[in-house]
Design a protein around this nucleic acid. Structure first.
Length: 489
RNA sequence: GGCGGCGUAGCCAAGUGGCUAAGGCAGUGGUCUGCAAAACCAUUAUUCAUCGGUUCGACUCCGAUCGCCGCCUCCA
């Protein structure tokens, strides 16, 4: 089995071959720390979390670097507005980011470098670029000479002439070409600044990623990722900087994920239609958000809505319910009894690994992978349904093995991480608390209903059941008495 | 204007030229039940925006048209 990845640069899927056998070096552009993160950021971190987990599952040794931009214009402006320093502001939101990531259960990257801690590397790279003729100084600024880099536009598939015609670029007298971008910006009085050969200033936005990825991953590395909006100019400029400085290919494969939209529009601060991760997590669990995100392909746009989240929650509950039923099975069965499971279902269950990996190998197709998991859930439910009171030992082993397998595969997406019985119990406890209900009171009502049922007083029994239903309590009459649960979702 | 992408059932969504177009949610009929609920079974796209072309064969490749979205300015 071979892993294929869609590479933005070639516009095609191709077989993934790491530079060093068994090792993957991955750099992902992280956040600019000036505000709370929204669910678009959540998608980004969750998608790469899944990619890293899958690569590791496949046996690769992954070095995962994700940076923080902790100095730029937005941070400076926001710090001024809030009468604080850029450092304090950035730290505040980096901490908030870490809290959000912990709440989402995201595996931390191996290295989380910050721009302001790599000023030396940045300056040194700019000096190399000046030396190589790719950059020029104007006063206390340094700009990248876009015309000089022949491959400029390679990633975003545009050419310099077309972009000039676009004419949405502000004319800056200091630049040789309006498309040239800043590597170093001279600072105004009162702004945070560092010493440099060109005077007091700070790095441009793009250079930090070139300098830091080089430091931690080398001149050439396997995968560079981010949101689609970073393709131009950010990643295009990174290529120009890194390749201008090293003369080597910067990145083998570019991965860009799609946006989260609301009512089919990209979330953005100017439209005021963004939701922060913490707002979402007040209403939905991390796994519901993960389920929602992974039920479509990472490159597709994803439209956020309450309906979509509720559907995700229902789907996730279905997975947990099946696993909980399996967990409730007796410890041992009858070793001599014939299996209740049919051949077709056994085959479906046993081929899950293979089919799941086939889906994931096809450019991390989590939606298809989830589909395969649901097919197996259906097979498991069918078997559970046909199980006699004392089941065959072979069936018990099959069901438990499948449940374990499903949880291992789901873990690649960070799903089904809770103990199924606990999950259901915790959830019910929480909903009960939200509804202000006492389990004791419910059980008393059920007992009253059972008495009515024994007397075949159906009118009274139904009345009590309706009363419970109004309280969001579902009743299940089984052979061993009546069980109840809170209506999930 | 330049460039990139998308359009598959009521909704969400997968689909790497050829086997019955996955899966989820919702709906309908049935099994179970005193009636229900849950679960299960069955059912819901002769068709993949439209029109052409390539091919023995296309949802899948090519072209055109319509509609939607994104990037070209900070953006995950």
């Amino acid at each position: 089995m071979t892993l294929s990845i869609y590479n933005t640069e070639t516009g095609k899927k191709s077989i993934f071959q790491p530079l060093a056998e068994g090792q993957v070096k991955l750099y992902v552009c992280g956040i600019t720390a000036y505000d709370y993160c929204h669910i678009g950021h959540a998608r980004s971190t969750l998608v790469f979390d899944m990619i890293v987990r899958y690569l590791r599952y496949r046996g690769y040794q992954v070095t995962y670097v994700r940076n923080f931009t902790d100095i730029d214009d937005k941070i400076i402006n926001r710090a001024n507005e809030q009468h604080t320093t850029t450092k304090e502001l950035a730290n505040k939101f980096i901490n908030a980011f870490h809290e959000d990531m912990a709440a989402l259960g995201v595996t931390p990257p191996d290295i989380e470098p910050m721009a302001t801690e790599h000023i030396d590397e940045i300056i040194s790279m700019i000096e190399t670029l000046i030396h190589n003729g790719y950059a020029y100084q104007q006063g206390s600024d340094v700009y990248y000479r876009v015309d000089r880099f022949k491959a400029y536009g390679r990633l975003s598939k545009r050419n310099i002439e077309d972009m000039k015609a676009g004419a949405r670029i502000s004319i800056n007298e200091k630049k040789e070409n309006p498309l040239d971008f800043a590597l170093w910006k001279g600072s105004k009085p009162g702004e945070p600044s560092w010493d440099s050969p060109w005077g007091q200033g700070r790095p441009g936005w793009h250079i930090e990623c070139s300098a830091m990825s080089r430091k931690y991953l080398g001149d050439t590395f396997d995968i560079h990722g981010g949101g689609k909006d970073l393709i131009f100019p950010h990643h295009e400029n990174e290529i120009a900087q890194s390749e201008g400085a090293t003369g080597k290919t910067f990145v083998k494969s570019w991965i860009h994920h799609g946006f989260v939209t609301i009512k089919d529009e990209k979330m953005s601060k100017s439209l005021g239609n963004f939701l922060t991760i913490r707002e979402i997590l007040k209403k939905y669990s991390a796994e519901v958000l993960r389920f929602f995100i992974f039920s479509s392909h990472y490159r597709s746009p994803l439209d956020f809505s309450a309906t979509a989240m509720e559907q995700a929650e229902t789907g996730l509950n279905r997975l947990y319910s099946c696993l909980a039923e399996i967990a409730k099975l007796p410890a041992t069965g009858d070793p001599g009894k014939a299996q209740a499971a049919g051949k077709k279902n056994i085959k479906k269950i046993n081929s899950l690994d293979q089919r799941f990996c086939q889906a994931m190998d096809n450019d991390f197709n989590t939606a298809q992978g989830l589909g395969h998991i649901f097919e197996v859930i259906k097979a498991l439910n069918t078997i559970l349904q046909s199980l006699p009171p004392i089941p065959a030992q072979a069936d018990l082993e099959l069901l438990r093995g499948a449940a374990k397998n499903i949880r291992e595969l789901a873990a690649i997406m960070g799903l089904l991480s809770h103990d199924p019985l606990n999950f259901i119990a915790e959830k019910q406890k929480q909903i009960l608390a939200d509804l202000n209900l006492e389990p004791g009171a419910i059980e008393r009502l059920i007992q009253q209903r059972d008495e009515a049922r024994k007397e075949k007083n159906w009118a009274r029994a139904d009345e009590l059941r309706n009363k419970l239903a109004e309280m969001n309590i579902e009743i299940k009459d089984g052979t061993e008495g009546t069980s109840w649960q809170v209506k999930l979702g």
